[in-house]
Write a protein that binds this DNA or RNA. Structure first.
Length: 277
DNA sequence: CCCCAGCCCTGGTCGC
DNA sequence: TGCGACCAGGGCTGGG
């Protein structure tokens, strides 16, 4: 479940190696992976492109080419980038694509559950495509403030947990970092989003930024599938305050962490630090 | 517009 | 040892 810190870790690893490289050849092994159809068209279009930038918007990896085209890669649940990749498709049944670069190295894409997507956009299309996804502010950038958070949460009766998973509140937060941020802010995950006080909005803004920043510093969280491109695990899972810690003591008060369902997702919180009343 | 249920997909775990 | 049920969940669609 790569969220902002995992995607950012991948981006930071790939950028120095890939920028300036030319794509020689692309092989797509999963017909569901690419847009637009058919996969062969995307593979053919990518061949010959020179990589100008490797960026990120929310949970999207954004490959910019000198031609003005963009490739938007979303890893969804189990997507993974391997670089430099070893072996061919036969070595790994879940390898879905391989990109050969002009220095002879390979970028491989692995995805067990096949939710991930590669979307190739023609010059000028990327901004409007991302605008249609209605992504909110980048939570680590300056513009993300208590006031901006207040604006997007105003009037919302949905639980704050659901509102954080909605990418309009802030781009890049997923199930793990939503719980970690709410624990830091001492806010119950079922609080109606529009009822947060000014102080709570400030604490939530800080909680989000602190949780994401720690995730990046730890190179992401490796629970099952996530690895950075070199194959190493992240270490953020060792610093979880609540996620997956049912029955274990709260780091602040020692109360056993509880698990509930919120927004259809497993949700962990401290019943003592994060009160609903 | 808001909110929620259901869908996609596969591996791992659990109960019998 | 096998088998079915269920869980993990990001983003999208469709319904109320």
């Amino acid at each position: 479940m790569p969220e902002l810190p995992e995607v950012e870790t991948i981006r930071a690893r790939l950028a120095p190696a890939l920028v300036g490289r030319r794509i020689e050849h692309v092989e797509i092994a999963d017909a569901r992976l690419t847009r637009p159809d058919p996969p062969g068209a995307v593979a053919d279009a990518l061949a010959g492109e020179r990589i100008a930038d490797v960026g990120r918007r929310g949970k999207y990896l954004v490959f910019a080419f000198e031609s003005g085209r963009h490739l938007l890669v979303h890893l969804r649940m189990t997507g993974n980038v391997q670089y430099p990749a070893r072996g061919g498709f036969a070595a790994d049944p879940y390898r879905r694509a391989v990109v050969r670069l002009d220095d002879g190295s390979d970028v491989a894409y692995r995805d067990v559950r096949r939710f991930g997507t590669w979307t190739l956009l023609e010059p000028g299309e990327a901004d409007s495509y991302l605008a249609q996804r209605r992504l909110g502010l980048e939570p680590l950038e300056r513009g993300f403030t208590a006031t901006s958070l207040e604006r997007v949460l105003a009037g919302r009766r949905a639980p704050i947990k659901a509102a954080l998973l909605d990418q309009r509140a802030a781009a890049g937060i997923g199930n793990i970092y939503a719980d970690e941020a709410l624990w830091r802010a001492r806010i119950h995950p079922l609080r109606p989003a529009g009822t947060l006080t000014r102080d709570e909005l400030g604490a939530l803004r800080k909680g989000i930024r602190d949780a994401l920043a720690m995730g990046i510093a730890r190179q992401g969280a490796s629970l099952r599938d996530y690895r950075e491109p070199g194959g190493r695990r992240g270490r953020m899972q060792d610093d979880f305050r609540v996620y997956g810690r049912t029955g274990e003591p709260c780091h602040r008060c020692g109360t056993p962490i509880e698990k509930i369902r919120a927004a259809g997702r497993g949700t962990w919180y401290c019943p003592s630090c994060q009160r609903l009343d």
